[in-house]
Structure formats: structure tokens, C-alpha cells
């Protein structure tokens, strides 16, 4: 689905990522670790074509990202669920409208009011906050809402950037369980995180590869995980 070959990204004369080769196949589960600033978010942005590789290639659903038009990128993103680190929302829309936004922009607006949306909002523990505005939510609530928005369209690929950073352990496990279930349904999942406990909990449930970005390169993490 997403295939990076010798991909590199740099700016201002420096190189942040280099020689990144990875295939996100259906049903794969990857964790991405590394210190802050190592390039985890940049790696994810290459995967959803928010950034273009400065060398090498990134193929998204069989298309070379370098040659994709805006419309093609939009179509590709409709098949992805992305949890952004900064959890950007539309401030004038309620929580449920924000979660339903990927359905709305894909022209599946009527589905926004069906049972799936309510079930999902309930699953991430935001049933009582359904009509709240984003600015009225705590950091943890925003992250849960962002994850709900990422999976509402039943995407083929889920890319999550620190999805449990501000969430208590019980809720983190609950969200992890949701991602694991989606992965078992054949979705590719990539989670960028510092949370080693979360990685261990996931490895107990699924066969997950743990990758580390070090010095701009992607490595398989050691047995300590």
C-alpha cells in the first residue's frame, strides 16, 4: 500500500531522513520510535504526502507520490486515517462534526449520523462530549477525538503520531485495542510513539515490528522492546 524506497528528506542543506526503505503492507503493524526531532513525524508526513521525498521514492497505493496531483493526494488520504501530533480540528465545528469530517469531505455525510459514529464516540469515551467544541476539550480528549476521526472512514492505512501522549493508561489500552482490531481486519497500522509500555502491550496482542529512527536512518529496534 505504501512503499518507501531509499527515501530521503532534508531541508536547508541538511538531511533529516535518509535511505528509508519500508513497505507498509495490508495487515502490517509497525511502531516507530526515536528521540524527539529524530524524524518520526517527517516519516509519517512522507507516507501521507504532506511532504515529498527529496530523493528516493515513495509509492502510495501504487502511485509515485512525487507525481501525484492534489486530487490524487486527496483521494489517497481518503483511504488513510491520520492522527496528527498537534490534533488539528475545525474550531467552529462540534466534536462529532469534526470526527465525521472525513466522511463529509468524501461525500458520505449522511453516514455521519448513523450508528457507527455514535458507537465510535462512545468507544473513545467522548459520548458525553459529543457537542463540545474542540477548544473545550482537554489534550487527552483531543487525542481520542483525533483517533476516532482517523478511523471513522474504515481506512486501509492508519498513521498515528503519538496518539496516546496525554491519555491515561486505561484509555491508552482501550485505543490500542481498537487499532489492534482494525489491524486484524487487514488494515496497516503505524504508530509513532515514545511509550514503550504501549509497545509492549501491543506486542502481546499482535505481531508488530518496532522500528527506530537513529541518525536519520530506520533501524529495527533491539530486543529490549
Amino acid at each position: 500500500m505504501i512503499d518507501l524506497k531509499e527515501a530521503a528528506y532534508g531541508y536547508g542543506g541538511g538531511t533529516l531522513l535518509s535511505e528509508i526503505s519500508l513497505r507498509l503492507a495490508p495487515g502490517s503493524f509497525h511502531f516507530l520510535t526515536g528521540p524527539s526531532g529524530a524524524g518520526k513525524t517527517t516519516f509519517l508526513k512522507l507516507c501521507y504526502a504532506d511532504l515529498r521525498a527529496t530523493s528516493g521514492s515513495v509509492s502510495i497505493f501504487g502511485q509515485d507520490a512525487a507525481g501525484m496531483s492534489r486530487d490524487e493526494i486527496a483521494h489517497a488520504r481518503q483511504r488513510m486515517g491520520v492522527v496528527h501530533q498537534d490534533c488539528e480540528f475545525l474550531d467552529h465545528l462540534s466534536l462529532w462534526e469534526n470526527i465525521a469530517l472525513p466522511l463529509t469531505v468524501a461525500g458520505r455525510g449522511s453516514a455521519a449520523q448513523d450508528g457507527n459514529l455514535n458507537d465510535l464516540i462512545g468507544w473513545v469515551g467522548l459520548g458525553a462530549r459529543r457537542d463540545a467544541l474542540p477548544q473545550e476539550l482537554s489534550g487527552g480528549e483531543r487525542q481520542r477525538a483525533a483517533l476516532a476521526r482517523a478511523v471513522i472512514t474504515d481506512p486501509d492505512v492508519i498513521l498515528a503520531d503519538e496518539p496516546t501522549g496525554n491519555i491515561d493508561w486505561d484509555m491508552s489500552l482501550r485505543l490500542l485495542q481498537l487499532l489492534v482490531e482494525l489491524n486484524r481486519m487487514g488494515k496497516a497500522v503505524v504508530i509513532a510513539t515514545h511509550d514503550l509500555a504501549l509497545i509492549r502491550a501491543a506486542k502481546a496482542q499482535v505481531s508488530a515490528r518496532v522500528l527506530r529512527i537513529k541518525d536519520g536512518r530506520l533501524q529495527l529496534a533491539g530486543a529490549d522492546l
Binding site: D50, R70, D71, F89, L90, L101, P102, V105
Partner: peptide
């Protein structure tokens, strides 16, 4: 601009 960025991130086409 911020609204447009969020819309694009969730898959909105420019025509939308």
C-alpha cells in the same frame, strides 16, 4: 488557511 489545511489533511479535494 488553517481550516483549509485541516480539510486537506482529512482528504478534501480542492474542488470541494
Amino acid at each position: 488557511r488553517q481550516v483549509i489545511r485541516v480539510l486537506r489533511l482529512v482528504g478534501a479535494r480542492d474542488v470541494y
